[in-house]
Design a protein around this nucleic acid. Structure first.
Length: 504
RNA sequence: GGGUCCGUAGCUUAGCCAGGUAGAGCGAUGGACUCUUAAUCCAUAGGUCGGGGGUUCGAACCCCCUCGGACCCGCCA
């Protein structure tokens, strides 16, 4: 049984799935595992007939932790301020919205429909007021739970609330002096003394307390999170303790997932620069593939993501499932589910109408879209126009070839001065081609037939005969189907190139 | 130092929870097709299941140790 179905099978009643990703920087493919895992579970729950909601909590009241490598030095002055109160690195608006926007656009592209909730709004609307009041009144119990479960000492004058200083704007510097609902008195390191209203976004709970408060205030029943939170004594454990003892409620069912690694580079991490932007990935690969990457892998295993040759294999696999699914062919249970949970519901057009791998070749032969369409017509794909899926695949392939494609799928014409190695037999073969090339119809079929004929007459192996042409033209042993290739290159160009190559 | 997860063919992995002695895809090699959409089809090779020990009639699977990778033990999300 697919992991999502197996997980959901143990649930009963209405469900609220929740995830949270901090908008502190560009959201990368690694982060996407969180929200996709949530979405896949959510869809599996819906399929099972459970009334479900899926929420994404954007932690935009969290402080800017440091000046990240992608930020200008001037952001030093904003360290410690909430992300929703800092200007965007570029353009208008706030820091958090700046990074949130492309993320939300990407969610749309990959068919994740989630209720987006900003933590700042939750605080501002007083959604957390009750929870804050409870933890403030029982701060000693909360502190005890944190100490017992995490094994970490909590200071005497600790409060489960960090006020936002109304003077310096930092949420990390103020110390609580007193509490009387709904007000928290504080003194900030900047020298300011003030009062926060817990019904407003004038302060926030520390992470380990805020998490269970969210569960409680929103009624979260399922939450996937990275294995870093799942450690014994980690934030899930303390959250569970607080949830049960302080709020008297049941902690959500956890689903702990492993990280995504970039093949050959290590774990994806913004700080190390080992990162592929999520918004970026859906521009060089079909969006379904990002879903598929997560859906087909057990959450407990790390994912080795290879944006080069591995991506092509992944797409092959997806297309294979898609075709088997459509034709009612034999497809094992997990593969079927992985496919169902990966496809985009908003589009009925198959990804594989023209195989991605095939398109990779075509795009390189035919730089002009008109020629490409012509080629598709000619080879019986039955295409009258470039469909939306094909169009976006073409765009994706161009970017992919540019940035991630391995050399063995790329080809380009050799420069005229580049040296080619051919033996006498091969030279003779090409010379033979040149003798007749001027007089035949310059069509793919005619070219192809003639080359076949010549190779047969020469007594060479077909494979090595073709290889001679490829070596001369693209410097490789193999290449796109010769007839089409040469017809596209044009008679004059082909003949000039071949004759100069054999006369070098 | 303590803890968690992962380590299966060149690559990506299934199988581990409920022990019966390893399965797939890609790649490679060979072959077929009046031989190329780097297509398709068929076949072959390739695995000390990270290593060692234990339990068992039997271990990839359970237990212990060990090596390698990742992550946490920073009121940091």
């Amino acid at each position: 049984m697919h992991w999502a179905d197996a997980f959901v099978r143990n649930l009963s009643g209405d469900q609220i799935f929740s995830t949270g990703i901090s908008p502190s920087g560009p959201i990368h493919v690694g982060n996407m595992r969180e929200i996709l895992t949530g979405d896949i579970l959510y869809k599996a729950a819906v399929d099972r007939g459970l009334m479900s909601r899926f929420m994404y909590l954007c932690d935009d009241l969290d402080p800017l932790r440091k000046v990240y490598p992608f930020l200008p030095d001037t952001y030093e002055e904003h360290v410690g301020k909430p992300l929703s109160r800092i200007p965007a690195p570029q353009g208008e608006g706030t820091y958090s919205e700046y990074f949130l926007r492309p993320f939300l656009e990407t969610l749309d592209v990959i068919n994740v429909s989630v209720e987006v909730v900003r933590t700042t709004d939750l605080y501002d609307r007083g959604v957390f007021a009750e929870a804050i009041d409870v933890v403030m009144r029982r701060k000693n119990d909360v502190a005890r739970i944190l100490e017992e479960i995490s094994g970490r000492a909590v200071g005497k004058d600790w409060y489960p609330y960090n006020p936002l200083c109304s003077n310096c704007g930092r949420i990390t510097k103020a110390k609580v002096e007193w509490y009387r609902f709904p007000e928290v008195g504080y003194r900030c390191q900047c020298g300011h003394e003030g009062v926060s209203d817990i019904r407003k976004a004038e302060g926030k709970m520390p992470w380990r307390v805020e998490w269970p408060a969210k569960w409680y205030a929103l009624g979260v029943t399922v939450e996937p999170f990275g294995k870093d939170h799942g450690v014994k004594g980690g934030s899930y454990d303390t959250g569970k303790g607080i949830m049960e003892e302080i709020f008297g409620a049941k902690a959500p069912e956890p689903l702990i997932y492993e990280h995504i690694f970039l093949k050959g580079k290590g774990a994806m991490h913004s700080s190390t620069g080992v990162v592929i932007d999520a918004a970026d990935m859906v521009k060089f690969a079909p969006p379904q593939i990002l879903r598929f990457l997560v859906a087909r892998s057990q959450p407990s295993r790390h994912i080795m993501f290879d944006p080069g040759a591995g991506l092509l294999n992944l797409i092959d696999e997806y297309e294979k499932y898609e075709n088997l699914y459509a034709s009612g062919g034999e497809l094992d249970e997990d593969a079927r589910r992985a496919y169902e949970l990966s496809r985009l519901e908003q589009s009925t057009e198959k990804l594989s109408s023209i195989g991605f791998r095939h398109l990779v070749t075509l795009v390189q032969i035919y730089p002009r879209e008109g020629d490409l369409l012509e080629a598709l017509r000619r080879t019986g794909e039955g295409l009258d126009e470039i469909t939306p899926v094909v169009r976006s695949n073409i765009d994706a392939i161009r970017r992919w070839l540019d940035r991630y494609a391995p050399d063995n799928v790329k080809f380009s014409l050799l420069e005229p001065h580049e040296k080619v190695v051919i033996n006498d037999q091969e030279r003779k073969l090409i010379a033979g081609f040149l003798e007749s090339a001027g007089s035949i119809q310059w069509t793919p079929e005619a070219i192809h037939d003639m080359i076949h004929e010549l190779i047969r007459n020469s007594g060479m192996q077909p494979k090595s005969g073709f290889a001679a042409f490829y070596r001369v033209l693209v410097g490789k042993e193999r290449g796109p189907r010769l007839g089409y290739f040469l017809s596209t290159l044009g008679r004059e160009f082909t003949m000039n190139r071949l004759s100069s190559a054999i006369n070098m």
